[in-house]
C-alpha cells in the first residue's frame, strides 16, 4: 500500500465508505487505483454490517428509565423536605424544653373583625399547644440542664446527619470531566 492509498483509505473510514464525501484529490486517486476501489466496496459493506449489528430501539427500556426517573424525582422532593422537617422538630423540641408557648397570647392577638370561627379555631389550636406546653413543662422539670444540652446536641447531630444523607443521595459523584 503506498502513501496515497493509505491516506485515501483512512479518509474512507472517516466518511463511512461514502465516496461522495471524499475530497476531489481522493476521488481522482480512486479513479486510477483498483485496490482502493475494492476497499471502498468492502468498507461500505462493513459499515452496513456494523449498523445492522446494533440492537434496535428499545421502547420498553425507555419507558422503564422514565418511570424510574419519575420515582427518583418524587423521592428527591421528599428528601428535600427532610431538613425542613428536622428543623421544625428541633425548634419544637427547643421550645418544649424551654417551657412551651404561652398559648393565651396567640388567641388574644387575633383582631376582632376576623370572626368567631377563626378565633375558635385559633383557641382550639391554642388549647392543643397549651397541652403540649404542659407536657413540655413536665419534661423540662424532669430533664436537668446537662440532659437538656445532651438532647439539644443529639437533635443537632441528627439534623446534620439527615441533611448530609439527603445531600449525599442527591449528589452522588459519578463523573469528572478531566479524570
Amino acid at each position: 500500500m503506498n502513501r496515497d492509498c493509505k491516506l485515501l483509505q483512512q479518509a474512507l473510514v472517516e466518511v463511512a465508505g461514502v465516496v461522495d464525501r471524499l475530497d476531489d484529490g481522493y476521488q481522482e486517486h480512486l479513479r486510477s487505483c483498483e485496490t482502493c476501489r475494492a476497499v471502498v466496496a468492502e468498507e461500505l459493506a462493513l459499515v452496513r454490517l456494523l449498523d445492522e449489528a446494533a440492537p434496535p430501539e428499545d421502547i420498553a427500556l425507555q419507558e422503564q428509565i422514565l418511570l424510574t426517573l419519575a420515582e427518583r424525582r418524587l423521592r428527591r422532593r421528599w428528601l428535600a423536605a427532610v431538613p425542613v422537617a428536622a428543623s421544625l422538630a428541633f425548634a419544637f423540641l427547643g421550645v418544649t424544653l424551654l417551657g412551651g408557648i404561652p398559648a393565651g397570647g396567640l388567641a388574644a392577638s387575633i383582631p376582632a373583625w376576623s370572626g368567631g370561627g377563626l378565633v375558635a379555631l385559633i383557641q382550639s389550636c391554642g388549647n392543643f399547644l397549651t397541652a403540649l406546653a404542659a407536657a413540655g413543662g413536665v419534661l423540662a422539670n424532669l430533664i436537668t440542664m446537662p440532659w437538656s444540652v445532651a438532647a439539644a446536641a443529639a437533635g443537632l447531630s441528627g439534623m446534620a446527619g439527615l441533611i448530609f444523607l439527603s445531600r449525599r443521595w442527591k449528589y452522588r459523584p459519578v463523573w469528572s470531566a478531566r479524570s
Binding site: I65, R72, Y171
Partner: peptide, 12 residues
C-alpha cells in the same frame, strides 16, 4: 447499565 447511566446523568 443504560438505565443506571441515564439516572446518574440526571442526578448530576
Amino acid at each position: 447499565l443504560t438505565q443506571e447511566a441515564f439516572i446518574r446523568a440526571w442526578s448530576a
